[in-house]
């Protein structure tokens, strides 16, 4: 493997005085490389954490495309797009901050960190606007999903011919769409349905497109949406906390060419937060 063994003690004498060197390391480089490897491993755990959510997304999207096609229209593409840009800008400023710390450009470092922080707040602000909008219109998860009249009208504008005013009433419009509860179904009926299921999903989707009916279980989309963006939002919040701490330390003048690991590692974390959003945006907002 390619890890560098820091058996050379050449540097250790030079840096012996560095107060940031911990006792069990031979050199700042060894310490930096250890921290960096640790950070990367941590980022991998973050990716796997979100991986579970992407898995849930993929499974439901693949098996119930009609829910996603229908429900994503309630999301605001431009707000999502704007947030994407905000995060990209913050990524740039964060990368610049790392560079500034490495080169000991203290003013630039402080400025970049402050800009990053501002972007993070802006992102959360926009997110808040989106959440509030959905909250108001009952575009929520599980039993809380209940589209309010105004919003139902809005969907009409979005080329859904006859968006229902109430999720519940939709089922009554078309008896074919009514799902018999559990054991009510006769075995013969079951056999027939299971038999031609291959087309079943597509049929169901077509059905909804032609009849303009809301598909069943739309709330699942919002469940996934809120969990994914919510967990991402929590990561942004955590990032805000850490960057604030960095900002304070940078004002104190802690960082320089000899010691920039905290800025570097926070940068890595922040980029992963951006990276996850890069996937969330098209998957949630840009379905078609």
């Amino acid at each position: 493997m390619s890890d560098s063994q820091s058996s050379s003690h050449v540097d250790s004498a030079a840096h012996a005085a560095n107060p940031n060197l911990q006792h069990h390391f031979d050199s700042m480089e060894q310490q930096y490389e250890s921290g960096k490897l640790g950070m990367w491993l941590f980022l991998v755990t973050e990716i796997l954490l979100f991986g579970g959510l992407f898995c849930a997304y993929a499974v439901y999207r693949h098996n119930h495309p009609e829910i996603f096609t229908y429900a994503h229209q309630f999301l605001d593409k431009s707000l999502g797009g704007f947030n994407t840009i905000v995060l990209i800008v913050s990524s740039l400023t964060m990368a610049m901050a790392v560079r500034a710390a490495q080169l000991g450009q203290r003013r630039l470092l402080t400025t970049c960190l402050a800009l990053t922080l501002a972007c993070a707040f802006l992102f959360l602000g926009v997110k808040f606007v989106e959440y509030e909008h959905k909250w108001k219109h009952g575009l929520l998860w599980g039993k809380n999903y209940e589209v309010q009249g105004e919003m139902a009208g809005a969907t009409e504008a979005l080329m859904i011919p006859a968006a229902p005013s109430q999720s519940g009433s939709a089922a009554d419009v078309d008896p074919n769409a009514t799902i018999l509860p559990r054991a009510a179904r006769a075995p013969e009926g079951l056999a027939a349905e299971v038999g031609d299921h291959g087309d079943g999903v597509a049929d169901a989707a077509d059905d909804h497109a032609t009849h303009g009916l809301e598909p069943k279980n739309v709330h699942l989309f919002f469940g996934i949406y809120f969990v994914m963006t919510g967990l991402h939002g929590i990561h942004v919040l955590a990032g805000i906390g850490v960057i604030t701490w960095l900002l304070i330390r940078s004002l104190r003048g802690d960082f320089g060419p000899d010691y920039f690991a905290p800025v570097d590692f926070t940068g890595l974390y922040w980029h992963v937060v951006d990276l996850i959003w890069i996937f969330l945006f098209p998957l949630l907002y840009l379905i078609d």
Binding site: L49, G52, G142, K143, N144, N217
Partner: peptide, 18 residues
């Protein structure tokens, strides 16, 4: 496991339905 348990908690507290 972390995300599984988190989803389970969310499922119980909020009824997310996954």
């Amino acid at each position: 496991l972390g995300i599984t348990l988190l989803l389970l908690i969310v499922e119980r507290v909020m009824g997310i339905g996954i």
